[in-house]
Design a protein around this nucleic acid. Structure first.
Length: 505
RNA sequence: GGGCGCGUAGCUCAAUGGUAGAGCAGUGGCCUUUUAAGCCAUUGGUUGCGGGUUCGAGUCCCUCCGCGCUCACCA
């Protein structure tokens, strides 16, 4: 299908033809770049003032981001991956014909190459006195940017693409224009590298487990369903890595982790995307208290590596990742915040009544665990601005966690919170195959049969466990949420390169 | 899925129910150290799609599409 061009695009298409008519390839295959913009400025400044030094001759390549033609001279800026440099084209240097060629055929957004020696202008900006230039790639569509200027080395944008729909649908344009958006994703990459470096440094082995699974599990969420044609079999996109990673502990690996994508067929919101990135690890012979300590070390390491410090600002709050984090028992936390002692309410009926007395909406059909979770979400989670562990969770919402001995209602599980949102989830893993089977059955009873969130029975997982699984601690963290926190973004869409949007007709 | 809001030129935004506009970008000029350069002139619109009310709709009403905020949901 042929594209329909706007008149702005048609003008540039015409320029492409004009270049070809003059024997100029508007999309040549190679560039002769010798320096990045940053390297050129550094090379120039290192010899600046030394009268005996040879001129710093460079060939730069990048996108044209500003042009100021002034008759017989033209100023312009090109931008590359890490910076920008001013170009100075003067009739005396390049000749009248070339100067006119530049102003007639080159547009903002084009990729160009420019060669010359570095100097400093009267206004003090390190600049290339251009002797030769050429087109590297013509841009047909103008970048959706208004003008910007450089003040004290900082790019100031006076008006830029801000419509969120266009920014996300055409993320390439958003990135091309908005340097601060590029910075978010550099930081995201650095965070993931740091997580990996930390896990590797702790002796964990990175593994890859199936994304297409015949039985989904490890979390309570609706899956995406797909189909294998030749096998005539429905498959699910994984909703967590948990059950496969723990099978590996049965196999004899003692420390495993995976960083990858989970898929959940549920609501999209500022903190939910249908596919999102998780880090999970499983650690043989450890319990949830050791996992808490490792969590603190992990996040301190990431902060040290990525931010160079352990404090950062999130939505106006100064947050410190300095260990240790406060550890609050869930039961005590709720007593302090609501006066309700969940230990006095072993069933959902009396708990719901107690919540009604507090004027809290309590779904009468909810399980005890779900009611407690609602209390946590309302009374505790929003107040956990500084990193905080909440531990000892209700059993019925934790079918893969090990019970606390002597307390049939509670399991060894914790969640980590920060900035008022849940960040990670971990427990001492249930490794008793008989108990596990009972839990799966229990889930089927506690949740209505039409509840899509019940855990499907995974016989192969039980088989694995029957061979013997060492005691272990497991952990999962939402990487996107961590990136949101460390880059101070309220919306998950800001930290996903291509967030999910509904298709346009 | 519910509620509220939004959708106008390439971008950012105006326009009591009464001739669809501005700045920037673009185009044509002038200008040899500019920094959102400046000056002169100028092009550019199916006002998200479709329907309705009205003498007349960007504006009021309805369906649909998309986006945002929010609630529900998401252990």
């Amino acid at each position: 299908m042929a594209a329909e061009f706007s008149n702005l695009e048609q003008i540039r298409i015409d320029k492409i033809q004009a270049l070809r008519d003059q024997g100029v390839d508007p999309f040549p295959s190679r560039s002769e770049r010798t320096h990045t913009t940053q390297a050129a400025i550094e090379a120039f400044e290192s010899v600046e003032g030394d009268e005996t030094a040879a001129p710093v001759v460079v060939t730069l390549a990048g996108r044209l981001r500003s042009m100021r033609p002034m008759g017989k001279i033209t100023f312009a800026h090109i931008e590359d991956g890490r910076g920008r440099v001013q170009l100075f084209l003067r009739l005396n240097d390049v000749g009248e014909e070339a100067l006119q060629f530049f102003s007639r055929n080159f547009d903002l957004g084009d990729f160009v190459q420019a060669s010359g020696s570095m100097f400093r202008t009267r206004t003090g900006e390190a600049t290339v006195r251009v002797e030769a230039f050429r087109m590297l790639a013509k841009a047909v569509t103008p970048l959706p940017a208004a003008k910007d200027e450089v003040v004290d080395g900082e790019v100031v944008q006076h008006a830029t693409l801000s419509d969120p729909e266009t920014r996300f649908r055409q993320r390439y344009a958003d990135l091309a224009i908005n340097a601060h958006v590029r910075e978010i994703f550099r930081k995201r990459s650095a965070i993931i590298s740091a997580l990996r470096a930390f896990m590797d440094g702790e002796g964990f082995m990175e593994v890859e487990t199936p994304i297409l699974q015949p039985i989904y599990g490890g979390a309570a969420a609706q899956p995406f369903v797909t189909h294998h044609n030749q096998l005539k079999q429905d498959l699910y996109l994984r909703i967590s890595f948990e059950l496969y990673l723990k099978r590996l502990l049965v196999g004899g690996f003692e420390k495993v982790y995976e960083i990858g994508r989970d898929f959940r067929n549920e609501g999209v919101s500022f903190k939910h995307n249908p596919e999102f990135t998780q880090l999970e690890f499983y650690w043989a012979y450890a319990d949830y208290e050791q996992v808490m300590t490792l969590t603190e070390q992990m996040l301190a390491f990431v902060a040290d590596t990525v931010l160079g410090q352990r404090t950062f600002t999130f939505q106006g709050d100064e947050i410190s990742l300095e260990p240790p984090w406060p550890r609050i028992e869930l039961r005590q936390g709720l007593i302090d915040s609501t006066g309700i002692d969940i230990q006095e309410h072993p069933t959902s009926e009396t708990l719901a009544a107690a919540m009604k007395a507090l004027n809290v909406d309590a779904n009468p059909k909810a399980t005890r665990g779900k009611l407690i979770d609602a209390l946590v979400s309302t009374y505790l989670e929003p107040n956990f601005i500084q990193p905080t562990f909440l531990y000892n969770y209700p059993r019925d919402i934790s079918p893969l966690a090990k019970s606390i001995s002597g307390d049939p209602l509670t399991v060894e599980r914790f969640e980590g919170f920060m900035g008022g949102v849940e960040l990670c989830n971990a427990f001492t893993e249930l490794n008793d195959p008989l108990d596990q089977e009972a839990r799966f059955t229990e889930m089927g009873r506690d949740y209505a049969s039409d509840d899509d969130e019940h855990h499907p029975m995974d016989d192969d997982y039980l088989q694995a466990m029957r061979y013997g699984m060492p005691p272990n601690g497991g952990f999962g963290i939402g990487v996107d949420r961590l990136v949101m926190l460390l880059t101070d973004n309220h919306s998950i869409r800001e930290v996903l390169l291509f967030p999910h949007l509904r298709s346009k007709e």
